[in-house]
Design a protein around this nucleic acid. Structure first.
Lengths: 133, 133
DNA sequence: GCAACATATGAACAGCAACTCATGCGATGA
DNA sequence: TCATCGCATGAGTTGCTGTTCATATGTTGC
């Protein structure tokens, strides 16, 4: 493998795009929402059932559902007295699945890596060369 | 290419797994880190260069780099006086790319969706049936 | 109409995290 | 060794956000 892989096609994101991405990913940045989403990934259900599943107060669950709704990740539909929530679409499920997958992968790498501040790299008597311009 | 996205295989995540996922995704939950990562996605560079690129103080960038290091997303290596940072591996690049892609997709859906609280669904005189058990 | 249930929402509080400032530590060159 | 550069780090501050509590809105059955 003589070189890098395919191209990045990851240019710097504009400040605005970065803000948008961050906003969306914040939905997955808290355990409660991740659990809510993963429960919904297993099938639609009411708020009360959701609250029992994730072991949170109904009130708290509703608050988070509101956030997820505004982010377009879930949808709710009344059915009698209750409201049945579900993932918005398959894209959300895919995002969740990939996120979990990537996280597991990263977790493995972490076990072997102390990840301290970087230490010296060049010999004590440098050739007095290079460095990035 | 290994991952088929066939069925869900998304069971409820354990509270612990959810915490782990949330922790990792928090790296992408702030504009500054997203920009830092996207800059690194375009190529490794020093801290100072990074600071200029994302328009943050060097101090702040270092703080965030520490977070990203501990999460195993980036690696740093001394080169003379400076430290060159890079994405940890291709997986990170992929995660970033997918994240951006999904976000764009969700953004589109948002435009057409007010996403208010759910309204009624069944007729005024329901058949008095069903509902989720 | 009223009572009971299911959910949503507003306010207040607590914890956390991102930034700035100041300083420490490592590396280079004279 | 000393001065300087580059980066890391600790303390302190501010703003945000997740939770709880109390209450409002909506729905059903009587």
């Amino acid at each position: 493998m003589s070189h890098g892989h395919a191209e990045p096609d990851l240019a710097f994101l504009s400040a605005d795009t970065a803000r948008s991405v961050a906003e969306t990913m914040q939905a997955l940045a808290t355990p409660s929402r991740v659990r809510i989403l993963s429960r919904l990934g297993a099938g639609a259900c009411s708020v009360g059932e959701l609250a029992r599943a994730v072991e949170m107060e109904q009130s708290a669950v509703s608050q988070q559902l509101r956030v997820l709704r505004h982010l377009g990740l879930v949808v709710g539909q009344r059915d009698g007295r209750q409201v049945i929530y579900a993932l918005h679409d398959e894209h959300v499920r895919a995002l969740l699945a990939e996120t979990v997958s990537h996280t597991e992968h990263l977790r493995l790498g972490l076990a072997a890596r102390p990840s301290r501040a970087p230490a010296r790299r060049r010999p004590r008597r440098p050739t007095r060369a290079s460095v990035a311009s």
